[in-house]
Nucleic acid binder design. Sequence first.
RNA 1: GGUCCGUUCGUCUAGGGGUUAGGACACGUCCCUUUCACGGAUGAAACACGGGUUCGAUUCCCGUACGGACUACCA
Length: 501
Amino acid sequence: MSDQVRVRFAPSPTGALHIGGVRTALYNYLFARKTGGKMLLRIEDTDQTRFVEGAENYILEALNWVGITIDEGQSVGGAHAPYRQSERKPIYMEYAKKLLDSGKAYYAFDTSEELDAMRQTFESQGSAFQYNAISRTRLKNSLTLSAEEVEAKLSAGEPYVIRLKVPAKEEIRFKDLIREWVVVHSSAVDDKVLMKSDGMPTYHLANVVDDHLMEISHVIRGEEWLPSAPLHILLYRAFGWEDTMPKFAHLPLLLKPEGNGKLSKRDADLGGFPVFPLEWNDPVSGNVARGFREDGYLKDAVVNFLAFLGWNPGTEQEMFTMDELIEAFSLERISKSGAKFDINKAKWFNQQYLKLQSDEELAKQYLSDVELEKAVKIVHLFKERVTFPQEIVQEAQFLFNAPENYDEAIVSSKWNDDAKKGIVAFKEALPALDNFVAEEIKHLLSAELEKAGIKMGKIMQMLRVAITGVGAGPDLMLSMEIMGKTEVLARLEKAVSTLGV
RNA sequence: GGUCCGUUCGUCUAGGGGUUAGGACACGUCCCUUUCACGGAUGAAACACGGGUUCGAUUCCCGUACGGACUACCA
């Protein structure tokens, strides 16, 4: 086995990929690139009851969108194919049999109903039921049943599961790359099901077998897996793979923005922000969940934002391209505690990255129905004022549509004699202006106002209201330039006649 | 309940035995400006608590509290 870094992202295709999953994928990717290792993608679809149409594609598209490229795995292939666990089904039974043969695992015939009943009984007595070294001696399994009975059940096709025979007294200690030493006693681990009665492996078995077979060097996953890490280590031991066991790094959780607990879909609905990278149309419920991409977040912003949720470079640099993240990334700088999901920060990053985009690019992408030269001017006018690209289009509406009414408060206080005189003078002088550009318009305006003895500041806001209907907005001169002389004239005409002189 | 993990401004975090505890988001004020925004400046804002160890703990150790994850034939 080489000492090359090989990491994997192993999502389950049960719906839209959660943004926390994207962060996990990102950290794996950054680590792989940083170390010159490989990034694998494995699809963990061992739960046939939770299969969701389109989910795998969604994962692929989401990773592709944020710029995480896969070296080996589902969608690109590789030496350890297949990378979809459902297609590796025979492998798991083969390995489970090895454990059976070596006495590290056993058949169990207890039904789910029986076990549920046990759990309830225990719970009503204030304790928790565990299928473990003690209770297994009183349950229906190949440890308590005679070889003949087991054989009879098996050949009769009776449903069974295969469970790990967890040692009664063994200390399990491992050094998590983020949390240092973690020690758990095997008595706290129960005899987890390895093979389900439908012939599919559970996550635990499939995960360990595949990580071993695929020569994974580092398992970087969410903290929710920390409690089952001891079990996985026991499994590596049972297989005799302890020497090549991957190193573990358990990432801090992404928490709700307010209150406590893990970030969930509910928070998205409550807070009015996305919690999925891409929009997701659930084929079962028919619900549509919003996505960062569709909401107008730039992928660079999402990556930068996500990278900083649980990790930081230790410098005061905030803006990082993917290449810079790769350069700066290290597992050691990942924090231990959970990070609250603060959408404000994401918005700020988006604003920063939006400003970095070229006017031309944005114009082509978002104002494709407007003549390019004009579209570029519009983008330039709004780019630094908005958070999302689509806001440019929304904000620009006033350039295309003359105001229906005028801000009452401003009209009543600013539509005075000076304003009337100045605006009318400007309107009268306008037709003679040939070169209708911002600078010339401004010259004309200040010349006219000077002639009339009016200070520009006195009437600017009223002029803005006359032309746009509202008291605030981007540079008025540039706005007029974009509207064009005819339109400006028409609007001034309308304002004067509507408001009266 | 049990097991495990965690705890520095409201939020993301830097730091680490002696610091004016640093930065960013958000917030306040001021400046710039034709308004709004951008930008600039500036302000308010934190070491959960209790014991040790130490000349000295926010930093190390132990408790407590609080929070979280897990506790399925789901991943």
